[in-house]
Design a binder for these strands. Structure first.
Length: 459
RNA sequence: GGCGCGGUGGCAGAAUGGCGAUGUAGAGGACUGCAAAUCCUCGAAUGCCGGUUCGAUUCCGGCCCGUGCCUCCA
């Protein structure tokens, strides 16, 4: 059991060594809840859900602490509230709930802790105070800013230096900044904006500070893994490192930084202006969550990849095939065995999901070609154990195929009996009629197998 | 302009200093009343130009193409 992870900090794959194997601590940057999550958010959630599964498999369910936050104070939320006329907490509550539901539909388990930024304002203020006292932050015109030149190590994660950043800056530098690279820890709120009283006047926290404060509270000063989308490398995570390290007297903040790659949609960048933003909420309404999950994991998490309708359909067909195998072997109980070592090894090698799926395909072949009951039971057990680790194939195959209401199912089953009878007397004309009818009326396709007749809902 | 990532069969997508997985699509066959599913067999790929090397898809340099970040977007 050796897990290797690609660490953005060192830009290489490293062997994972936990600080405390009895409590591996992982923090994922969660959503800002002002809108529905898109498929890119879904990718991050699914990928790092898998990371947590792999860690739990290696260190034990109770020895991994998984924290995924909710950002519920942000200027985008304020704008959304202004536009819709809804209250801020109504908006954040609504989208936080939908986010959790949608991610659950993708098989992304709920974190152990889901802290909200607004619950940690006192901790943030305490951290600001520490940073000011340590000479790393200063107050200016109601703002508190982190002074980047006060910490020489700044820029290590994103590998950029101050001069480059200033040279490439597209945004005008605020006049109250001591240094152009300084960033906001606290900013003033107007009376109509949400705010908290503070020694610097009524205001609200800057974006990066919440994660620092919540991690300090839940994961401690120094923890194992911090993960998020690659766009967060700069400035979010860079600034977070600076704040936390400086607030903790130079103590190392995080050992492993992990970032997932971006995705595109049908060959194009996903953007509001192109109108091609794919929302997870819409997808789970019309596709199996498992198929979406499989599609999201079909490419390695650090690779950029293209989200397409074709990919989703192909993923669905793959699961149809796998659930079909499980259904065909339905009479055989799964043997109590673990997932194949090669499968585990693939996932433990920086979450190499394409490799893992290649191994899964081999296991599927073993299952479909197993001869004896004993072989079948073993193959089924291995196959299901792999599915469990990666978060797939745990449903009853009948449920997977027959996504129909009970009433509908009863009618369909009745037709199936008629079909069977017609076939029994070799009345194939009638049999085909019934089959066509089922297809037309219920989108049901019928298969005749040695074991009997099965049907599935096409979707 | 600065920093970064990627270009592998029709498509998706791993790996590797020397036999280039897997899935899907395609061809042929078995099975089947017909289908579907499944099984067996097969063809098919490393962007371009140099360099290092006995040998490069892999390492190095250049080019082309795509894509991302550069103060609050996963």
């Amino acid at each position: 059991m050796t897990i290797h992870l690609y660490n953005t900090l060192t830009r290489q794959k490293e062997e994972f060594t936990p600080i405390d194997p009895k409590k591996v601590r992982i923090y994922i940057c969660g959503p800002t809840v002002w809108n529905y999550a898109h498929i890119g958010n879904g990718r991050a959630a699914v990928v790092f859900d898998l990371l947590v599964r792999v860690m739990r498999h290696a260190y034990g369910n109770n020895h991994v602490q998984y924290v995924r936050n909710i950002t519920d104070i942000d200027d985008k939320i304020i704008d959304a509230a202004r536009q819709s006329g809804e209250k801020i907490d109504v908006i954040t509550e609504k989208y936080a709930r939908i986010y959790n539901e949608d991610m659950a539909a993708l098989g992304a388990a709920a974190p152990d802790h889901q802290p909200r930024a607004t619950e940690y304002v006192p901790q943030m203020l305490k951290m600001i105070d520490k940073l000011i006292k340590a000479g790393h932050a200063y107050e200016a015109e109601g703002h508190v800013l982190f002074n980047v030149p006060s910490w020489p190590e700044y820029g290590k994660l994103s590998r950029r230096n101050r001069d480059d950043m200033i040279a490439g800056a597209r945004v005008e530098v605020a006049p109250y900044k001591k240094d152009p690279a300084d960033f906001v820890l606290w900013k003033p709120s107007t009376p109509d904006q949400p705010g908290w009283d503070s020694p610097y006047g009524r205001g609200r926290p800057g974006w990066h500070l919440e994660c620092s404060a919540m991690n300090e509270a839940l994961n401690g000063n120094h923890f194992d893994i911090h993960a998020g989308g690659e766009d967060l490398i700069f400035p979010h995570h860079e600034n977070e490192i600076a704040q936390s390290t400086c607030a903790h007297g130079g103590e190392k903040y995080v050992n492993y930084w992990m970032h997932n790659g971006y995705l595109m949609v049908e060959g194009q960048k996903m953007s509001k202006s192109l109108g091609n933003v794919v929302l997870v909420h819409d997808l789970v309404g019309r596709a199996h969550g498992e198929a979406i999950r499989l599609a999201l994991l079909s490419a390695h998490y650090r690779q950029p990849f293209d989200w397409t309708e074709d990919l989703l359909q192909q993923s669905k067909r793959t699961l149809d095939r796998y659930y079909g195998l499980l259904r065909d072997a339905g009479g055989v109980k799964a043997a109590a065995v673990g997932a194949a070592p090669s499968f585990i090894a693939a996932l433990e090698d920086d979450l190499n999901t394409p490799k893992a799926f290649a191994e899964l395909a081999v296991m599927a072949k073993d299952l479909s070609t197993a001869k004896t009951a004993e072989e079948k039971a073993r193959a089924r057990g291995i196959f299901l154990a792999a599915g469990k680790l990666i978060g797939l194939l745990q449903q009853d195959p009948e449920t997977w195929f027959k996504g129909a209401t009970d009433d509908e199912s009863a009618v369909i089953e009745k037709k199936i009996v008629e079909l069977q009878a017609a076939r029994g007397v070799k009345d194939y004309k009638k049999a085909d009629e019934i089959r066509d009818q089922l297809k037309q009326d219920y989108a049901v396709s019928v298969s005749v197998t040695a074991a009997g007749i099965t049907w599935r809902k096409e979707s």
